[in-house]
Write a protein that binds this DNA or RNA. Structure first.
Lengths: 201, 201
DNA sequence: TATTGGTTAGTGAGTGATAACTAATAGGGT
DNA sequence: ACCCTATTAGTTATCACTCACTAACCAATA
């Protein structure tokens, strides 16, 4: 077996870590099992990561970076409603493509009992919310009338995304998530939760 | 120290288990630590529970039983909106009184890699959703016009509750949850998400 | 006196991490 | 083109420790 560069190996290790968490739970994520799957020995893992928590940090980084991609994608759209819809649907697409990631996202307790990891997770959640709020505020700047506190609406939207993904996960990824999400979006729109409001000119 | 009855001891063990999960995470929930906190030895724990999973089952049972209480309380209200509001606010009250429980609720991954526990968690989530749907349907029966699929609206409401509690937890339980929830409910009402709709007579 | 809730002492299996050492690789000087 | 050297990616062997769980025995209670 050929030697890999640190970058390649790091990617591989994080991939396998995510898979283990998904398939057998965080409790089963041991350096032993991880090294077995990667195909190198335990100490070799420590060539690439300081310790176990450092690996978890790597996983969180991935989610964080995806957030930026999400935001850029949402901003390409014209109206506020379209931006929000893109933001939400992108989430569903992300998880539909990477179901393993749901296991990580719904294992928050992993992160909450280590200060460094907790901070990182907090930043991640704030990032998502800030993005949404920013979408609202820049629309407001352009004269769109938002009914309701952007902070509240952001929380509501994020809650909906989370719950939908959780439900999908609990039903063992049966129905297509994106389809379920689209139906939900229609319901939301029908109720007037997603609308561009009145434009003041 | 007087010997306790099984019922009392079981309660005590579950209480301490929840506390450990809350304070140090599920990873720190060991029979050793648990017995130390309860004030008995490790094997004594096994006099009251079959194994570790059996203790977790006990925790899930508590959440389940609270659900029934929740539902009864919601049904005392007159209109659909009031019922839904009561359902939501009761959740916030529950968690505000028992912040430790948030740690359990957001540690789903504990339950998801053991078939029996996974089933129990699935039932729990279905229970909550069935309750909401039932509220919608009995209102529909009385002629109230619901805009949107009750299934979808239920998911949205549950998502909102979860996200609000998660946010509260992430901010280290700072702001009063019930107050935050009330404000959120107003936003929701203002947006028309919670309304009794048109009554057909 | 029988049952129940407790004890002490011990099991095998698995944990994250480290010390000591080696094979592979990339780059610069001749 | 060739060797030499520093660095990097890997190895084997082992550490000290924790895990869930059990057998055997004992004392308090009903």
């Amino acid at each position: 077996m050929p030697r890999l560069s640190t970058e390649e190996r790091k990617e591989q290790i994080i991939n396998e870590a995510i898979k283990i968490i998904h398939e057998e739970g965080y409790g089963a994520l041991s350096i032993r099992e991880l090294s077995k799957r990667v195909g190198i020995t335990e100490p070799a893992i420590y060539r690439h990561f300081l310790n176990k928590d450092d690996i978890i940090k790597g996983i969180l980084d991935r989610i964080y970076h995806f957030g930026n991609h999400l935001f850029e994608r949402a901003k390409t759209k014209e109206t506020l409603t379209e931006k929000l819809k893109m933001f939400i649907i992108s989430h569903f697409e992300f998880f539909e493509d990477r179901p393993e990631m749901t296991s990580v996202v719904f294992s928050e307790d992993i992160f909450l009992h280590n200060k460094e990891l907790e901070t990182k997770l907090g930043e991640l959640m704030k990032q998502r919310k800030r993005m949404l709020i920013q979408l609202f505020e820049s629309a407001q700047h352009e004269g769109v009338d938002i009914k309701g506190d952007p902070e509240d609406i952001s929380l509501i939207l994020l809650g909906i995304v989370r719950m939908t993904v959780l439900e999908w996960r609990m039903t063992v990824f049966k129905h297509p998530l994106k389809k379920r999400g689209s139906k939900l979006l229609k319901t939301i729109e029908g109720m007037g939760l997603l609308s561009d409001g009145v434009i003041h000119t």
